[in-house]
């Protein structure tokens, strides 16, 4: 069990920040995505998964609520347009859960329709106190895939059974990464204990300029332990951007080339050295592309991040 070394954290943070900046101007897209659509996918900032060194685009795509459209073919095709826009803008990670109704099936439909199974960084969860293996098999069936890049224990449900299961799958080569999730800042103590004691690749937490509790301990711990961080609810389920709608962007947003509050928030998150990938959800293809553009250009430094949080804190 290692304790957090804040000096190393800050030092590393700077290095990662520089890495992020260099990524924004020089690095190329992942091999599979490049192979699938080399002419159209732009360069985006990528973050490193510390446990392997793999670099993944710094913005992902969530599916909570937005992809739960059931058998409605019109809405399924709209979701496919969102996924298409997301991939074409350089995105890779799509996240879902058995808890999200039909979202998994809809993602499978979208990937089939776009022929994009080889472009996605597939991220899902196990969310049961019962048969975790059975649920994972069902999840794979819905995605129309065999193996996932990342599986997480959703909200720590059935953690004592499901986490060993995921590690076993990883050891057998059926899974690349193992993670755990929480949201709304719940069960932080349990989360921290697991981060300290288990060989996790990813954690998923709620984080945005208004909900900053994870900055105090959890994000530094993740950095110290080499655990990649996925950020859920970056827009507070949409309510944050709705509240900011119509408000003029601060002047410094132009320095970051942020065109919207959504991009400003995402840049705020990406710029944190511990954060690997926020996963905003949307039903709008234009918003998916806009979110991905947050992972291009300049990122805010610590001072500017505080300014962003302060401005948003005043407005909401």
């Amino acid at each position: 069990m290692s304790e957090i070394d804040r000096r190393n954290f800050i030092k590393g943070a700077g290095a990662l920040g520089l890495a992020g900046m260099s990524a924004s101007i020089g690095q190329t897209v992942p091999r599979l995505a490049r192979a699938a659509s080399s002419a159209t996918v732009p360069d985006v900032i990528r973050k490193t998964v510390a446990s392997t060194g793999e670099k993944i685009p710094a913005v992902g795509l969530g599916s909570w609520i937005t992809f739960n459209v059931g058998n409605d073919m019109v809405l399924r095709d709209q979701c496919a347009s969102v996924v298409s826009a997301f991939f074409n803008a350089g995105g890779r990670m799509i996240d879902s859960s058995p808890m999200y109704g039909s979202a998994q099936e809809v993602i499978g439909y979208c990937l089939d329709k776009l022929g994009a199974h080889d472009r996605v960084f597939s991220t899902d969860k196990v969310w049961t106190s019962g048969d975790g293996a059975g649920q994972i098999a069902e999840t794979a069936e819905r995605w129309h895939t065999r193996n996932f890049d990342l599986l997480q224990v959703h909200n720590l449900v059935g953690i004592n059974e499901n986490l060993p299961l995921l590690f076993r799958m990883k050891d057998e080569g059926r899974l690349r990464y193992v993670g755990i999730t929480t949201s709304h800042g719940r069960r932080t103590d349990d989360m921290i204990a697991l981060m300290k004691n288990e060989r996790l690749d990813f954690v998923q937490v709620t984080y945005n300029p208004v909900d900053r509790k994870v900055e105090e301990y959890l994000l530094p711990l993740a950095y110290d332990r080499g655990i990649a961080v996925i950020v859920n609810r970056p827009f507070r389920g949409g309510s944050l951007t709705q509240q900011l709608e119509g408000e003029p962007l601060p002047e410094f947003a132009a320095d970051l080339k942020a065109e919207s509050w959504a991009q400003l928030i995402l840049k705020y998150l990406i710029a944190h050295p511990s954060v690997t990938c926020p996963i905003p959800a949307t039903t709008n293809p234009a918003h998916a592309a806009e979110n991905m553009r947050a992972a291009t250009g300049v990122l805010p430094d610590d001072k500017m991040r505080e300014q962003i949080a302060a401005v948003i804190g005043v407005l909401v």
């Binding site: 809405l75 720590l156 004592n160």
Partner: peptide
């Protein structure tokens, strides 16, 4: 540690009004 009781009602809202009325 499998605790279901720390979920709020809003956690179980899985769809939007748009999808519901569709």
């Amino acid at each position: 540690m499998s605790e279901w009781w720390d979920y709020g009602l809003a956690d179980f809202l899985l769809f939007s009004p748009r999808v519901y009325y569709r």
